[in-house]
Design a protein around this nucleic acid. Structure first.
Lengths: 114, 114
DNA sequence: TTCTTATATGGCAATTTAGCCAAATAAGAA
DNA sequence: TTCTTATTTGGCTAAATTGCCATATAAGAA
């Protein structure tokens, strides 16, 4: 890897890191349906407001969501909808992993039954 | 989030975490072209063999790559090609972020020129 | 102005991750 | 068997991440 390649893969990794957390993936799913205020998301997630605010800030810094202030309320919305295709791919991986597990289990059950 | 939702988002996050590292993204790109031995990837990345081996193990545990031993050499290959669509989405995010930066810069230059 | 509501930020301890070295293992060659 | 090559694993320290609490800020209401 030369310097340019390193920069490229670091840039990609930074965005992916922003997605690599259960609460932040939940937020992406929610914002796909409609924009939401910090307070709404906080209630749905069930964590401290400051925690959710920081998660949103991580997503915002990565360019995945954007915010708009209305009065004292800040509404967040999804900036890059293609993120959702990506999640469907992750589901494919999970499905594939599940199949592998099933195969392993059926293998062992057969052996045990012998 | 109820317990099932938490499990779902944790499962997704675990797979995404496996991708959230420059070297591992590089590996995914390389394996998309062709299967590679640990030694080849190690040389391309320029890190310790043990480090690369551990990165490969992370990807394998996540179900993203699979391995096949031939003699003393272990060849890794991409198990879930859709991972690449996802990376193209990440590129979209990077492009969008770059555009935002350009807008910010052009805004400030205009101001400074006044 | 002060009060209240909504968010963001600072700070800290606990947990996780990364990468190197050294040592262990696997498989074939001599 | 011993030697060699390829890879993995254990162990360790350094760095990054997480989540809560307390505090600060922003904006409107009184």
């Amino acid at each position: 890897m030369n310097q340019n390649e390193i920069k490229l893969y670091e840039a990609r990794a930074n965005i992916i890191k922003a997605l690599a957390h259960p609460s932040r993936l939940f937020i992406v799913d929610m914002l796909n349906k409609q924009p939401r205020a910090v307070g709404e998301l906080t209630e749905m997630i069930g964590a401290d407001t400051s925690t959710v605010s920081k998660h949103l800030s991580v997503l915002k810094n990565a360019g995945i969501v954007e915010d708009e202030k209305k009065g004292t309320t800040v509404f967040y919305s999804l900036k890059t909808p293609c993120i959702l295709n990506f999640i469907s791919c992750i589901e494919d991986v999970i499905e594939s992993n599940t199949k592998t597990q099933v195969e392993i289990l059926s293998c062992c059950r057969t052996r045990a039954a012998k």
